[in-house]
Amino acid sequence: MANVVCWSCRGVTGPGLFCRTCDAILPVDHGVDFFRLFGLEVGFVVDRTLLEERYRELQKRLHPDFFASRGAMERRLSLEHVTRVNEALRTLTHPLERAGYLLRLAGWQEEKIPPDTAFLAEVMEQREALDEVDPGAGDAHERLATLRAEAEQRARAEEARLAEMFVAAFGADGQEWLPRIARHTDRLRYHQRFLEELDRLEDQAFE
């Protein structure tokens, strides 16, 4: 990473959040990916506890509240940093967003991969099972709970597959894995949407 000139003291400073000479907050470096920003290893498996710990550390250093009495430049930079930190947290927290982000990092251009028909048939079947549930009926809670358990299991299994594939993708011949990963990311998206649908029905059944 090339050295840059600090906007505040005009001194030379390296990469980082703050100038190593005058400690002024530096502009956001979009070349630093979300994993590096949080000091985490690039990969699909993320340690939630560590992620949140790093999040709090970054907030303690960068939050606009700490720059309220500083100049306009510093206030703006602090806001930009924390906006990005929040985006990074969201991306790294949700498996689906994380998978999409990793694919983009790996250079995958978002092409539409046609889903395999066997999987689509499965999805249709699950949808039908969901459509048959009447949220007002007495057995709705039970049926939704069963469907949720199954759907979550499918999502977890898909995530486990993705974790394995990402490990392979970061090894040799990584590019060959990307279309497969993209396909499985699409499958995870289906599971995610199904779970969201389930959320809505549960809200109604719970009323």
């Binding site: 806001l79 906006t83 929040n86 985006e87």
Partner: peptide, 10 residues
């Protein structure tokens, strides 16, 4: 921006 998004956000 979905509800309960941490702010600041873009």
């Amino acid at each position: 921006v979905p509800r309960n998004s941490p702010i600041p956000t873009a």
